[in-house]
Nucleic acid binder design. Structure first.
Lengths: 167, 167
DNA sequence: CAAGATTGATGGTTCAATCTTC
DNA sequence: GAAGATTGAACCATCAATCTTG
């Protein structure tokens, strides 16, 4: 049994506060750490390709909104779990870089439609290829059965967590 | 089969770029989303208790460093995956609130020892109790067997990811 | 009065530069 | 010269306030 940083955390609690039930740390501590490590690694990759995580997220979210590559800012902020103000800022940058365009919504004059430009689409395609290749490499340690099992358990956990936060 | 937001992402890619291998998203997309949702929920809880995630992290990391409740800033920044500058900032706040104290390291005059005050220790105990109670509630949807299985798979995945990033 | 988007203030992080000590 | 800690600039986030339109 190879001991990782989270096992160490649990062992420390066992000494410091033996009565504490730290079983949840074995799950959420690892999820948190995996997320941070994968993000740090993804950031390095994206920066080597001349972009950043926040730019990448917007581009690929629009890219998979085929066939028209359009979404409202509101939809983007909900999908990415960031505030509306953050999105305005990201769109300003992306529009200056001519990767997206803001168009008025024909049915609601309060709203916008954010659309990927051809350049933005090409950029998104290039980036997502590299990004997914890297993610697959990080999954190398698991075989197909383990990966599917992990996937199913995460889906089930997410089903519990999602409504709690949305509520 | 209940469809969640990540299943939706994969379905979108299936339409937009059918040739793309998106299996890694089923794992990392969910880990990322779980982390963000759990963090948002944790932030709300901590703010209702008069504190913040970054303050909480430092306090509990020192708390479980029993028996002396001491760590060097460098150890803290590595454990929490934040920069040394961020830590200086956090410690300034916590020291003003009299929850930690900075002491000179007796063996190395460059270094510091950060120590929890009695007030800081009591605060950490109070916070970790509430925090772990909330985490356990989020795990309610999984039975004991599923939780242990998830735990093992996450540990194995972390063993692959950890060295890649550290390198 | 509610909803979509923007703006400005504030907050915390990273990163590079600096200072001291090993 | 390298390592520990601090500082300040730049960056991007949230949040509350604002403006327009439904």
């Amino acid at each position: 049994m190879n001991l990782g940083p989270i096992d160490h955390v649990q062992a420390q609690w066992q000494t410091a506060r033996p009565e504490l039930d730290t079983r949840s740390i074995a799950v959420f501590g690892r999820i948190d750490r995996l997320s941070k490590l994968a993000q740090a690694e993804g950031k390095k990759l994206l920066e080597s390709l001349g972009t950043s995580p926040w730019e990448y997220e917007v581009l690929v979210t629009l890219r998979r909104a085929a066939p028209d590559f359009e979404l409202a800012p509101r939809q983007l902020s909900e999908a990415l779990l960031v505030s509306a103000g953050a999105l305005t800022n990201r769109l300003d940058h992306l529009e200056r870089a001519q990767l997206v365009e803001r168009h008025p919504d024909p049915t609601d004059r309060r709203a916008l439609r954010v659309r990927l430009t051809p350049r933005g689409r090409a950029r998104a395609d290039e980036l997502v290829d590299a990004y997914l290749r890297r993610e697959r490499a990080l999954l190398d340690g698991l075989n197909a059965r383990e990966r599917r099992s992990l996937e199913g358990l995460l889906r089930k956990l997410l089903m519990t967590v999602e409504p709690v936060v949305t509520a």
